[in-house]
Amino acid sequence: MTPMSHQRRLRRLVLAVAALLLLAVLAGPAWGLSDREIDLRVQGITEMLRCPTCQGISVRDSEASFSQQIRAKVRRMVEEGQSDDDIKAYFVSRYGEWILRAPPAQGLGLVVWLAPLGALVLAGGLIGWRLYRSHQNPTERLHQEDKGSLTPDQRERIARDLQRFEEED
């Protein structure tokens, strides 16, 4: 074999590998996805999308014509190698944030996400405060509650009476 023909074969091999790599890049993330994997991705994405003609049902769970078309479109987009975010962005650009069943965790949507946590913290705080108050010494509580409305003499008398009751018990 002459050095010239060896070089030519090497060049062909490099070109073939480059063409294969290019094909793989063009095929994108869907390259090599099995039907089962495509099904799972389509189900996951369509679960996040709201059926346009129903009330509170996902595209995945709806048999409405629009939902069927959306499912088919999502499948085509997955097969073309588009990412979940790309597919969601396409539907948001056409239908607005309304099409997403869960609000985005940003802007006003973040308030919706954080509201239950805030309510939980508030409720926990209230319960903790009530428990703390119920375990406080009654004399001490009386002092705190009636500081403004009782005279020092009255507070002293009440404390004395309470002390007496506790001793009698």
């Binding site: 346009p52 014509s65 088919a72 056409r94 239908y95």
Partner: peptide, 13 residues
């Protein structure tokens, strides 16, 4: 049949 135009225009009905 795929409803491409309807989906591109974000039709609800």
């Amino acid at each position: 049949a795929a409803g491409d135009v309807s989906l591109n225009y974000g039709l609800y009905g």
